[in-house]
Every structure is written in C-alpha cells, then in structure tokens.
Design a protein around this nucleic acid. Sequence first.
DNA 1: CTGAGTTTTGCATTCGTATGCAGTTTGGCG
DNA 2: CGCCAAACTGCATACGAATGCAAAACTCAG
Lengths: 334, 334
Amino acid sequence: MKNRVTSAQVAIKADVSQSAVSRTFTPGASVAPGTRKRVMDAARELGYRPNAIARSLISGQSKMIGLIAAYLDNQFYPIVLERLAKALQARGYHTLLFISEPGDQDHELEKLLAYQVDAVVMASATLSSALARECLDAAIPVVLFNRDVPNSPANSVTSDNFAGGRQVADYLIESGHKQLAYIAGAENSSTNRDREAGFLAGLEAAGVSLAHRAVGGYTHEGAAEATHAFMRSDNPPDAIFVANDHMAFAVLDTLRQGLGLRVPEDVSVIGFDDVPQAAWKAYGLTTVAQPTDAMIEATVSLLFDQLEVGHAETTRQCLPVSLVERDTARRPQG
Amino acid sequence: MKNRVTSAQVAIKADVSQSAVSRTFTPGASVAPGTRKRVMDAARELGYRPNAIARSLISGQSKMIGLIAAYLDNQFYPIVLERLAKALQARGYHTLLFISEPGDQDHELEKLLAYQVDAVVMASATLSSALARECLDAAIPVVLFNRDVPNSPANSVTSDNFAGGRQVADYLIESGHKQLAYIAGAENSSTNRDREAGFLAGLEAAGVSLAHRAVGGYTHEGAAEATHAFMRSDNPPDAIFVANDHMAFAVLDTLRQGLGLRVPEDVSVIGFDDVPQAAWKAYGLTTVAQPTDAMIEATVSLLFDQLEVGHAETTRQCLPVSLVERDTARRPQG
DNA sequence: CTGAGTTTTGCATTCGTATGCAGTTTGGCG
DNA sequence: CGCCAAACTGCATACGAATGCAAAACTCAG
C-alpha cells in the first residue's frame, strides 16, 4: 500500500545503477554532472526521498539524539528543549524525545538505546549507574544537562549552582534579613543539593543559621504548602530562597494573594533559573540566572566533539551564574 | 569501537539459529520455553538489545511519530508535548521532534519523512498543500493539532474556537461592557481566525461593533504593545479579548503594572487556552478552557485508528470548550 | 594517435532483523 | 506402539542504501 520509492527504482528510471543514485545523495561522492542531473530528475519525478532508516543501518549512525525529559511545566525545560532541538537540527541531527515518569527511567532508556541514538541528553531524571555503564559500553556519549552525578562516567553541563546559592545567601544577609528559609526541590536532585549547599555555606560564613526548611518537590503545590507552613510558625521568615523559579511563583502567590503580605517589604523571595516569566511584571522575580544559551551551546559542542571529532574524555562543564535583581527582594543598602 | 551485539552473536552463544533469537523477541512468535530461556540468558549475558533500526527497515514500521512544534514558550504546547509523548510511549511509539522555524517548515518536514515516521502530528505551523499531498501519497497519516486547514486531506483535532469566541462576546456584553477590543494572534492561524470570527459573530448578534483590534502575533511583546496602543486612544476599551492566554498575561501586566489600571474594575481581560498559569493567583485569568486531555486522547485514537486498524477516512474532531470565570473580567449581574 | 593519470561507474556485499517455507521434533490419542 | 497434528526450528531471503574494488570512460600531454 505504501508508496515507497527506492533508490533502485530511481536507478532504473534514470538508467543508471543504484550506486549512482546513492552517490548522488551522498555529499562529496564522485558523480558526473550529467549523471547527477538524470538522477535528480528521476528522483523528483518519482518523489524519491532517501530512507534514513536504511542509511542508519549501514552507516552505523542514526543521526538521532535521545533526549530524556520530564516536568515540562517548569518553563525552563521547554525552552531548553526548543533551543537544543533547534541547534541539533541545524547540524543535521534530530531529537528523539522520551518523557520519563519517575520510576521507569531505566526501562525507557532501554528503548531509547534500541533506537540506536548516537548520543543521549538527560535533561531530567538521573542516570542509574547501570544504564551509565551500558551507554559507556555501547560507546554512546551521554550528557547530563543541568544535573551532575559525581562518580558517573557521563559528561555534564551545569551552571554553578553552588555559587548561585552562595550569592543569594550573601545578598539576603547583606540586605539585613534575619530569618532565612529555604524551600528545596527534590532531595535527590543535584541542582537542589548544590544550590542548598551554597546557600548554607553563605549562611555559615556569616554565622547565621537557617530558620526554616521544607521540601517543595519542584511543584507549585508543594511550594505553596511550604510557604503556608513557614508563615504559620512562631518565627516566620523575612526571606525565602526557593530552589527554582517555578516554585517561587507559587511562593509569591501564596504570600501576596493567599496571606495578604507584601513582597519584599514583609518577606523577600529569591528564585533560581531566571525563566522568562520571572521578568514578567506581575512577578518581577529576583532570581539567579542560569546561562541557558551557553549551557545549550556547551552541550552541543560537547556532543559533537564526541560524535564527530571522537574525543572520549568525559567533561564536566560548570558555567557561571548571575544574580538578577528585580522586585521581590529588598536590596542591600536600601 | 562500538560494542554492538547482534542477534547472530546471541544465537551462537545460545547455540540456536538467529531466527530463534528474533522470535524470542517477537511477541506472539512460536518458541519453545527452553529455547527462549537459553536465548534470554545469552542475551542478558552479552547485553543484547534488539536493533530498532534494523527492525524498522524490514517491518516497514518505525514506531516513530513525527511531531512538529514551535513556540514552546506558550505553555500550552509543552504540556501537549509532554502528555502526547507520554501517551504515545505507553503504546510503544516514540516521538521524533521537529522544531519548525517560520519559513523552513517544508524543508524540515522533508527530513522528517526521510526518517520513515509512521505518522505526523503538527502542533504548530501549517501544512503546505504540497507536503500534505506527499504524506497522502506515502500513506502517512497526518493530524493537525489545534489547527485546521479547511480543504486539506489531513485529519484535525481542535476545540470549538468559534463557540469559545462567541461565548466571550456574550459574556462581556452581558456584563455590561461597551468598548470591546480584540488582540489577534497571527492573522493566518486557524485558531485566531475562528476565535475572532466567533467573537465578532457574538458582537454582531448584540448589535455591538468592535472598538479596537490589533495583532499581537502570539508574542508577549506584541500583546503589550497592542495594549498600550488601545489605552492611548480616545476611546479606550473597557474589555479586551486576547487570542490566547500567553498574550493575555502580557496584557494584564501592561494594564496593571505598566499603566496603573485596575482589572477588572477599569478593564476586563479574557484569554483563551486555560494554561495552568492562568489559574495562578497573580493572574487569576478568566479564559476559555480548551479540553487539552480530550484533545490529546482524540489525537492518539485517531492516530491508532489509522495506523493499526487501518481506517483511512480523514476526520475532523472539534471538541467543546468552556468559559472559566476567574478574576479578570467583571461578571454578569454584578 | 597513444598511453598515463584521473574520474566515473557498476557489481557485489554489507548492515541487523523478520519471516515464509520446509523440515524436524513433540505430544496426544487410539 | 503407531500415527497425525501441532509446535518448534533453521535456512534462505528480503528490507534500502552505502561502499570497496575493479573495470570503464574520459582527459590531456606528447
């Protein structure tokens, strides 16, 4: 039923061999101009399109990159997804998308490897060490995006989460906040771990201790609940550092609309990521900006170094962050 | 270098034929329990994983669905992407993602077809009629998601944009608004066309004429500019219908933070889509809800009807919408 | 017009798996 | 114990394109 046109059919129509057709569609191959034209004409007439699947089989390169993601409701990831896919497309690669549900990452990754992807980018979920080994064995480069697993053989591209957390601590202390709170993302995520560690390091350096801590699980609801809990306590915080912007929006909504408090007069709030929404005026969120474009660029170069140049050493890139001062945190010297 | 394990290697190790290995991994094939076990053991030991590329080549089914998208900054699409990909995964299909840049859709779609995707879902960009024909020729089902091209041979799943626009008009008029404005998305998008047509139909039925109209291009900035222009005019609107929520947020920010106006006291605003953000308290956007889950479900069943059952007729599904009353539009009888 | 050097071309094989066919084994039942 | 059907197995081939190799065609200088 399917109207599949093959190179052999084109070859017959153009009165050349199948090889000639193949070479016509292989950049850099040796084909006489006349032959090429005959082939192109026949191809156009028949509606021929080289079969990427067959090509992959023989060339050993699928030109597909497996991308594992989840939680696309946090705007950070869709944006990464869009730009990364676009960057890969520009280089002739395409993105096979896997949405990982908590729990079945390994199972899904199995399937992804079955598709012979040339590399894997993990933008969420963590790589189990078993899978990491499998990828290593199969010589499939893996890049962890925005996460880092210390002793794994995978490459990673992250921003300097520790420094970011530290900057937030310094900033909040310098601007006179006394009761500091932290809303964590997921306990086991590397971004949360580093952001929190940096924050705590900053507090310790100033001799301040953390007044409140709760886990928001990177969800809107979790963050809202945590905020309520904080504010109901005996010593409510005067500043909340939230592990990412997505949760910070919920914190702001809860403080302002839910509890009728003023931000930053009553409570300061600082997020992390600097998603586009953070700049929207309804929020105007003070936050730590991740260098999204640079991270994507780094990911792409890393990938191509390994895919096309053949570099093998695993690399861990950590890019600098910067605090973006907007309207949700009292400023120093104010 | 690549440590590729093939079915032949497993066959040797398990002392069976390559066919036996193949059959072991083919659900429903006839294999003796003992043989299956020997094969499985050998496979596990060698780390064998069936090569989906080779399988596609011979079976003629890639089990990949091409998904074309763009504008992932509008939260509606990431969510669709996530849920759709998940639903497809659950059925053993995977998503090959293409980000279309305005202008090169055709060129990209070409590549997508080269990958032998079993079907195409277009969640943005419109299908040129040339491409539509190519897909038809290749017997590749195409589903237009949230868009509709009247005389094309493609299936479509949309919500009732016309009825939604109409409801907004009725609602705004009933609640006593006099100066109505509309901010369009992109002129050539079917969603915009239908939403606007429905809105105008409602106005006409009430004998009201549209006071203002501008094109926001589905962008934050475009909507902000349009709002400024409206409010600078001699007869500023007391209600603005915005073609989607993404732009409506910009309208709200501009009215409130930019111009110091109160919503809905001074101006009412209604959006379209009901993305999760619309429910966040900082916005509390009154909007028309698209039945996202139902649309995805419809898309998936449509796809599978065509892929596995073999139905061929093209279908156009149009699902009902509902107005969600929140806080950005004055209510009738208030 | 000849011969050496360079392009172009076709043949045959390869990638890894699925499957029709025919041959072999197994099991059930009389 | 014998026989037929059913279950299982292996062989050979196919999917569509890329590529090493050797033959053929062309180029150009002498």
